[in-house]
Design a binder for these strands. Structure first.
Lengths: 253, 253
DNA sequence: GAAAGACTTTTCACTGTGTGAAAAGACTGG
DNA sequence: CCAGTCTTTTCACACAGTGAAAAGTCTTTC
């Protein structure tokens, strides 16, 4: 079960997921040639892969262009049904949203990004559309508590992968700045952010504890920055920790 | 873009999705040997596939067992954002739910099953948990309007694949019965069902029109059978048709 | 309306990827 | 402590997956 050193790979399978990822990251349907270009594959190979994906329902070919198919929803459903953390999330987030009046969100780290797993809007909803499943960066906002829990080699990979570490507020951030901030987060056990990923938004987040210390999940609460000053947010830290602990317990159920 | 005759396949990619499907259809995490057994693969191959899927975030290895990972949610998000029908669905279903007071659902056919794409609960909610993304059969309930729109060869495949065509109400159904019913649905343009897939539930559904006539999507309204008699349901047919037409227009947007 | 250009699809011969049997190494429980 | 089952590694072989190029479409331009 532990990661072996040589990491046996399977080129064609890997490429199939490259194609899926290209489609996932595009906000509109893509033509064959465009998929091939973005995935770095030959048109012939891309066509064959798309054919398989299409028969599996992961890709749908509209007139002139491909996009993701409904099987994507089916596996998401499978994930939500099996995953202990997701199943535990809704009630815990609801309670946290009710007591704080803020929007609560649960993220899981996946590779060098995080994914929104669950979310409950507070009384004061900052709503953007359908955020569940959205991929977000690890170096901004609530992502930092996940970055803070990464093993060194993965953290190095993250630093190498991200071009611009600066915030939405326009503040430039060096690698050293970020590393120092992560160290703080490790000590304090939470993170307060403001104007980091989204302008005008602030929030606090905490890791969901994991047995091995490398937490893969975080809970956060957030709201409009001008209406919820830092002092108020910090007051919620104990509640946030309680929720994080509850989720940690529920995880391996 | 049309389906070629020889259908070029890619064994390893196909197998990767077999593994995903095994995990999707299991309601609990599975051990390596069990995944291998269910997918009909050798343990060595299964292990390699799971490794790739794990690095991609589609599979997570908990202690002793594998289950689907958060990347499943990420591609579902990608699907919902790109798919015209899904994007159009919420407002249309909401309106339909508001006027009828019933629960409204949108399905898409995927292979020989249908998948719940969107759903809005009515005033009288028959709620089961998280149905979006759920796979449901084509030969019961709202599935029939999709089956009715299938090309002959696929319909034959469906008939061959389903073991027991009978309903939840216990009524046995022969292949001839079903084919006759599908013919009726083609004529009428809608289907009324009661105790077919779910005991105590009844509803009507209609195909979302497609340019080529082979509709891949259906809208339906449903509620507790004893509180909503057939006569009431049939009264909603015009509303249902209007919603279906609206969705058909929005699809290729 | 013809011709150029871009895109999609098919074909095919080669090679390196994906394969499973078998061995080695972990667990688990009796 | 041993037997049985499960996971992981290794390895030699065969064929699945590959991309260049040709053939076939569709689209645009003048």
């Amino acid at each position: 079960m532990t990661a072996g050193q040589p990491q046996p790979s399977m080129r064609s399978v890997e490429r199939a997921f490259d194609v899926i990822e290209v489609l996932e990251r595009s906000d509109k349907p893509l033509r064959l040639s465009e998929v091939a270009r973005r995935a770095g594959l030959s048109p012939a190979t891309t066509l064959r892969l798309l054919g398989v994906l299409q028969r599996r329902g992961f890709v749908v070919a509209g007139q002139q262009a491909y996009h993701l198919g409904p099987a994507a929803l089916a596996i998401a459903h499978g994930f939500l049904v099996t995953d202990g953390l997701s199943r535990a999330a809704t009630p815990v987030l609801q309670e946290l949203a009710a007591t704080t009046g803020l929007t609560t969100t649960l993220h899981i780290r996946s590779g060098l990004e995080r994914i929104v797993i669950a979310r409950v809007d507070g009384a004061d909803p900052l709503r953007y559309q359908l955020p569940i499943g959205r991929r977000l960066p690890l170096h901004l906002g609530a992502g930092k508590v996940l970055a803070a829990a990464m093993p060194d080699d993965e953290l190095d990979a993250l630093m190498a992968a991200v071009r611009d570490l600066g915030t939405a507020g326009g503040k430039p951030v060096s690698e050293a700045d970020l590393r120092a901030e992560l160290e703080q987060i490790r000590e304090r056990g939470y993170h307060f952010s403001m104007n980091e990923r989204v302008l005008g938004s602030s929030g606090i987040s905490a890791p969901v504890p994991a047995p091995d210390g490398h937490s893969m999940a975080s809970v956060g609460i957030s709201g409009p920055a001008e209406r919820h000053p830092e002092s108020e947010m910090l007051g919620w830290v104990p509640e946030l920790r309680r929720a994080a602990a509850a989720l940690g317990r529920a995880r391996d159920l």
